[in-house]
Design a binder for these strands. Structure first.
Length: 430
RNA sequence: GGAACGAUGGCAGAGCGGCCAAAUGCAUCCGCCUUGAAAGCGGAAGGGUUCACGCCCCGGGGGUUCAAAUCCCUCUCGUUCCGCCA
């Protein structure tokens, strides 16, 4: 949620910043929010003045009663009673306008960082680094899509996953399952020096899913368990961001760095038929997420640090990769600045997004009410949040299967994963 | 799932419907005292919103009343007991 006060003091600045997202309808929404805010302030002032008089009169009633002046007390009560009527009307109007403004603000995206590159969409995302580890050409045996080679190796059994749970669910078996878990372990171990490991719940309340920005706008993309009013998390970002919601953190305790390995659940509504093969897009997958709650000053450096950490893990696997920055037209609604790491998969001949690292400025923290207190300052301020995937399993798994495929059809396991593979060094055909 | 009790400031814990933003203790900060500290003494100190006056905040929501931390309803969470259970 953007700061309404910013809208008040610098409406033109907000307009200009959001115009960079190249969504014309946003500007209309901002104007509407400004109008609602103005109206809200008028009503609030009027309501508060009425309340002040009621409070005043009520005190008088008490004093008059005590003094035995019953008639005067009755008069004051009558006045207060009629004021109470108008107070109720004003309060109702206040609540209506306030709710309308709130709903509108929930849907207005974050302002992009001044240095975020301009652009209309995906095609304008600038390349920041790479390609790294990219061979001049790939031998024919690497040009096999993982859904074919992995199925042949017996480590991917999507046919049975579909039987059990329906389309777009996957299942790894044997060393394939071990490999998936090894990737998570690697990502956790690579970040354990700085990040506290958390094992959060994967079912969360509506309030929690709203705080991170998934609701109300993306309700169709999340699995809902209606009977209990719970939602399955699409990413560990959701519970981790809300870990400190409603709390005031001491500046000395920041940044709070957390990581978690969880299943992630996505309905992928609207993407039926796209990327449905193999492990490119699935309803349930494993991911290791890293996340920071920080002061505004700490945030830029943390963003760099988190990108570097995600990169280091990908690089250590020996996969061809590149880093791109997300331009204003392609940025997610909560993002302030954002980078993607992509891995090349020769079998499907595609760059696969395997990590997305973003700085949310105070957008999420305002929704989630995460604040910080400075030692010498009165009051509190809204914290900043950042998060990113340290490693998302399916696409990295797929890229390993394709990139490490040998001429005989076997797949060599990257060295950094060997400690987690129970002695296996290669996945061979049966 | 059933029953009883509970939820108040950083923590603990008072609080006859009006004198309650809220006692007291601990913790914190600033003085005094001391070579320095502890103890003792004196003082300061909640959050949100507003340019400000003010308004709002005693788990959330609703109600009664001129007036609610206080009464009523409801939800959530916690504790204890019973039941069920991997």
């Amino acid at each position: 949620m953007i700061d309404v006060r910013l809208l008040r003091t610098d409406a033109d600045g907000v307009r200009a910043a959001l115009a960079r997202r190249t969504k014309p309808e946003l500007l209309e929404q901002i104007d509407q929010a400004s109008r609602l805010d103005e109206r809200l302030r008028e009503i609030t002032a009027e309501r508060d003045e009425t309340r002040r008089r009621v409070n005043e009169l009520s005190k008088e009633v008490g004093q008059l009663r005590k003094a035995g002046e019953t008639d005067a007390a009755e008069t004051a009560m009558a006045t207060s009673r009629s004021l109470g009527e108008s107070e109720r009307t004003l309060a109702a109007e206040h609540d209506t306008v306030s709710e309308a403004l709130h709903q509108l603000l929930l849907r207005i995206p974050n302002v992009p960082h001044p240095d975020a590159p301009d652009g209309a969409g995906e095609e304008d995302n600038p390349l920041i680094k790479g390609p790294v580890n990219m061979p001049a050409e790939f031998p024919e045996h690497q040009r096999v899509p993982h859904w074919e080679s992995a199925t042949a190796l017996g480590i991917l059994d999507n046919e049975r996953a579909t039987k059990i749970s329906g389309a777009m669910f996957t299942m790894q078996r044997g060393l394939g399952a071990t490999l998936a878990r090894a990737l998570c372990q690697l990502a956790l171990d690579n970040n354990a020096d700085a990040f506290e490991e958390i094992r959060p719940p994967t079912l969360v309340t509506t309030a929690t899913l709203t705080a991170t920005g998934q609701l109300p706008k993306f309700a169709d993309d999340a699995y809902a368990i209606e009977r209990d009013d719970l939602w399955a998390i699409p990413t560990a970002e959701v519970p981790l961001t809300s870990l400190y919601s409603g709390e005031v953190l001491d500046e000395a305790d920041l940044p709070a760095l957390m990581m978690a390995h969880t299943s992630c659940f996505r309905r992928e509504a609207g993407s039926a038929g796209r990327d449905t093969r193999g492990m490119l897009r699935t309803h349930e997958f494993d991911k290791v997420e890293i996340l920071a709650v920080a002061t505004p000053e700490q945030a830029p450096e943390l963003l760099t640090m988190m990108v570097a950490r995600a990169e280091r893990t990908i690089a250590s696997l020996g996969l061809p990769y590149r880093i791109i920055e997300i331009c204003t037209g392609d940025m997610g609604q909560s993002h302030h600045r954002s980078y993607d790491i992509e891995v090349y998969a020769p079998g499907c001949d595609r760059w696969l997004e395997v990590s997305s690292i973003s700085w949310f400025s105070d957008y999420q923290a305002r929704r989630g009410d995460i604040r910080l207190r400075r030692p010498d300052k009165k009051g509190t301020e809204i914290a900043h949040t950042l998060n990113g995937s340290a490693l998302a399993v399916p696409r990295v798994w797929a890229a390993i299967i394709e990139n490490n495929r040998q001429a005989d059809g076997s797949v060599v396991i990257p060295d950094v994963l060997l400690p987690y593979m129970r002695g296996a060094t290669v996945i061979s055909p049966k």
